[in-house]
Design a protein around this nucleic acid. Structure first.
Ligand code: MN
Ligand code: MN
Ligand code: ZN
Ligand code: ZN
Lengths: 148, 148
DNA sequence: CTCCTTTTTTAGAACCATTCTAAATTGAGA
DNA sequence: TCTCAATTTAGAATGGTTCTAAAAAAGGAG
């Protein structure tokens, strides 16, 4: 089962259970709500945003559960941690390969189509992952339409 | 003045002062000691290692001074912050373009010669920096000579 | 050199993202 | 339904980094 790429789609909780079971992941209510939020809102969220949003549906959810599940999703290759900002991490769900651009002015992160071939080995090291990150000034900031 | 690439070279403190003055950086004793450590020990150190090592020469140095100067060097393009580990950052001095490989087993970071062309613009965003990061299992861990 | 102003340093407190603790709950299989 | 391991929870703790406020140092002017 391939994870949907688009944001804002309705995703049935039954379908989410199936995605988890396919990967031998135990299905729990908080786990489903967190994954649902990630899949339906592809905004490179912080843990804090995920916490706030999931709490709307699940008022008793704790930060420990959010972090436990984010780490759990990462171990199970459903999620990637992105460390582009100085002070916090953001998360990116889904399997499609792409790279990121971070704007030094507004700090927004943009997806960039990924085009570079990943080598199998370099200097004797086995390569299993590769990421390409760009930074600079984003289109919007270049236009000068946003003041800082 | 191009920063020396090799590790372990003796670097005169007079030369360090000159490097700083060339970039209009105020010259101070802790600043020189920190830069000296970075230039003579190219091991992708943590802030904590830098603190411990500089403290040997400058017993009264504080963490605030270490962090202030690391951030100062980054602003002045003498240093890069590398965010590959989950729990801490490491630092990399010098201007030579290269990428990094991090081993998922032993967490060691290796320099990789950098080969990819950096585009000037992508999708309307102005690109000023690019980084390529690889991860996987390093040569040493593959040989199985180190136990975990 | 001395004087003056600004920047830097220092010790320690504070901050804050993330993890840990220990008890309660839940899920999935028997 | 029973059982047990996995998960969740509230709140405390951790640890890397930054902040605070006072002292020291750098560097320019005279
Ligand atoms: Mn992305
Ligand atoms: Mn390096
Ligand atoms: Zn921007
Ligand atoms: Zn290794």
């Amino acid at each position: 089962m391939v994870l949907k790429k688009e944001s804002g789609l309705k995703i049935d909780e039954k379908e989410l259970s199936r995605i988890l079971r396919e990967r031998n992941c135990k299905v729990t209510v908080p786990r489903i709500k967190i994954l649902k939020y990630l899949l339906m809102n592809r905004v490179h969220p912080t843990a804090e945003l995920i916490y706030r949003e999931v709490k709307k549906e699940l008022p008793k959810v704790s930060y420990a559960t959010i972090y436990n599940n984010l780490n759990y999703f990462i171990e199970n290759n459903l999620l990637k941690r992105i460390r582009l900002h100085k002070d916090y991490d953001i998360f990116d769900v889904g399997t499609h390969m792409h790279s990121h651009f971070i704007c030094k002015k507004c700090n927004k992160v943009y997806d960039i189509p990924y085009e570079i071939h990943q080598p199998k080995k370099i200097k004797g090291h086995l390569i299993t992952d590769m990421s390409v990150n760009f930074s600079g000034i984003c289109k919007t900031c270049l236009k000068g339409k946003i003041k800082f």
